[in-house]
Design a protein around this nucleic acid. Structure first.
Lengths: 197, 197
DNA sequence: CGGAACTTTCAGGAATTACTGAAACTCAAG
DNA sequence: CTTGAGTTTCAGTAATTCCTGAAAGTTCCG
């Protein structure tokens, strides 16, 4: 089997990108191939098409499974295992966020917490701990936000993203809202909903 | 000079984390050291304290500068260049977001655009392009959101993050708002601002 | 149970990336 | 100019990571 130029270009680019992140070029290419494939592919076909050794593909798939990024499927009349990426692209983003959090953020938070607890032995230590505390707070804030957002369904998430920075205007709207219905008219509190949206 | 245990632990951890991202362990350690340091440090002091060769430090600092993550400073009465991280941690996040976008996201978007434009040579190509289009749209959406959010000042950003997923409730509030002031009372349209907040 | 079809593991070689020391370069002060 | 403190470059080596083929493992069927 041979790749079409479109798939090949994507696979190569994704491989390069993969190696800038934590995954190897090979793993990136396997993922890219599965991502654009019409049907689940068996390992030997992947090895064939990408010119990797069968064992390399096996390792790569194992890693992708550990990220929960591919699912495994058995096709009737074929003993081989077939692999596919998640179909819903938003689910892919959610999975990535979860896994990166588990692997990178959580351990970092735990180290930061430990170091902040230590008794400082010098003014330099006290300063360092201050910086670590800042970092810890920032990460926790981002994390709580991400947890929160993970709970939304996709439609809500998209709506939120589309709103972008204008959400701040909405926030101000809210602050002025309590005045409404207490004898003030909309004009009195200077609300123009359409402008906000 | 010798590192205190607190700084050393942080530097080591950050080095490991760095190597999971695109940067080398060395560069991660240099950054971590500068991040917790009370004062800007000259290159030779960094080399001394981390036990790296002077040239390795020079390379590392150059890379950090290319990320705009350290600034360079001349202290009176000292010919050496001194290096420091950005003081404002939110500015660090913004800078990181910008640089990663420039280095990873933008090139990917451009590849995706090109491939989507190609004339498909098969049904498989048509399917692949559909997937690429999905990915392209998703990235663009995230990107526009991030551009938008970058424009907010830090206080607004923090407020937004703290709001988290509850922003959706706010959005619903807005949808019900036009009824207000048109003869309906707050009770009629079932708004409880405090519950939302 | 035996064996075919398929998968995984693993030791070691290949390729890549990181790091060093020596040499070249820069620049300001004398 | 010249000197020397400081910085960068670069070629070669060290360290790491990646990839392979051979062998061992698993599973399912007859």
């Amino acid at each position: 089997m041979k790749l079409t130029p479109i798939t090949e270009a994507f696979v190569l680019h994704f491989g390069e990108m993969g190696s800038r992140w934590g995954i190897s070029r090979t793993v990136g290419q396997i993922y890219a191939l599965l991502f654009v494939s019409e049907r689940p592919l068996p390992a030997d076909e992947i090895a064939d098409v990408l010119n990797f050794s069968r064992s390399n593909v096996s390792m790569g798939l194992k890693e992708l499974q550990s990220w929960h990024l591919v699912r495994l499927q058995h096709l009737p009349g074929d003993r081989r295992e077939h692999f596919a990426t998640l179909g819903d692209i938003w689910q892919i983003v959610r999975t990535l966020a979860e896994e990166r959090r588990r692997r990178e953020i959580d351990p970092t938070l735990s180290v930061l917490r430990d170091l902040i607890m230590e008794t400082p032995a010098s003014p330099a230590d006290r300063h360092a701990q201050g910086r670590l505390r800042e970092m810890h707070e920032l990460i926790e804030l981002l994390l709580r936000w991400s947890d929160d957002v993970q709970k939304l369904d996709t439609a809500q998430l998209v709506q939120l993203l589309k709103l972008g920075g204008r959400v701040v205007a909405l926030l101000e709207l809210k602050n002025r809202l309590p005045l409404l219905g207490k004898g003030k008219s909309r004009a009195d509190v200077d609300i123009d909903v359409d402008e906000v949206l």
